[in-house]
Design a protein around this nucleic acid. Sequence first.
DNA 1: GCTTACATGTAAAATGTTACATGATTGG
DNA 2: CCAATCATGTAACATTTTACATGTAAGC
Lengths: 177, 177
Amino acid sequence: MQLQAKYVVLGLLYKRSMSGYDMKKQFEKYFTYFFDASYGSVYPTLTKLEQDNCIVKHTIIQEDKPNKHEYEITSTGRELFEEYLNSPVLDDSIRADLCVRLFFGEFASKETVLKWMNERIKKNETIVAELQEEYERIKSEMSVTQEITIQIGIDYHRAQADTLRKGLKLLDQDSST
Amino acid sequence: MQLQAKYVVLGLLYKRSMSGYDMKKQFEKYFTYFFDASYGSVYPTLTKLEQDNCIVKHTIIQEDKPNKHEYEITSTGRELFEEYLNSPVLDDSIRADLCVRLFFGEFASKETVLKWMNERIKKNETIVAELQEEYERIKSEMSVTQEITIQIGIDYHRAQADTLRKGLKLLDQDSST
DNA sequence: GCTTACATGTAAAATGTTACATGATTGG
DNA sequence: CCAATCATGTAACATTTTACATGTAAGC
């Protein structure tokens, strides 16, 4: 079984009402390294949860901007989310293209492999810096477990970059023999 | 775009022919932390690659055991895999239930949160030990980039456990104030 | 004048998981 | 005798991505 988008949606609405557009924003900002869902996934999920009476829609008329559909969680929705919180934690499901490529690295040229690794190291450094900045900026408004969440993200990207740097040295030794 | 199973299948066949069953075995053993595919995904992928002339099937008649379908990569298949190796590396796609739960941790009881974290720490310690054992056992037969792959897995699980242990301390301080 | 942000949604296609179906042999 | 390993495959269902469709307003 895999983590379903509907639980993430319900989790967000547990604290405050928001629109599908707002949710996607949240995913991009705070969920980057552990969850993502496209609009084509968010909107149908909202429609389905509404049909199941887990959420109710409120249309907010806005001038200058398109109207907004704000969803509010119902008691049924709260129950469903609480059931989720009491269900067993699922394993992380990861699809890491870089690791797949490295596994087959012997079939690629050395330059290609080095490029993959160097680009990833650089990318991860950027992400670590961004997450750290974000963390400093909002930690006062975050719960302790949310802080841990961000920390897991930071350490994940940092650990991967470290391993890749060590890997570069290994490759260097390998080619010099 | 997401990493497609067909490229992983082609990658395995690039070195030697094997069956769908063998592939699943490989995924479980060496790809655990960065890729997985069920039989219901592997077999249809093989059927489709065969239709596209990327692989050819050889039926091996076995006594005592069910017959085996060994697939061999064709030149078309090799080209497709080489194209993949030269395409841009995709970002990791992660769905981490634990992080989602921690993000919403304030809605769960403290015991529940502690249970989530302690269980994950224990699980990761087991995985690290297994990967390390496996690494020692087969590193002589592995390419350098494959070693890096295993190392990324080890460090990923270790870093997450470390962060969670630090998180437990944070939670402790938090409750004592 | 172009892009970005705001905002929602659908349809087609791909992709995937789970459960089912089958059936022999080996090891505890 | 029961579970696991060997081995393949399908069907139903769930889920998701991508592309399309629409339209305003602000900022550069």
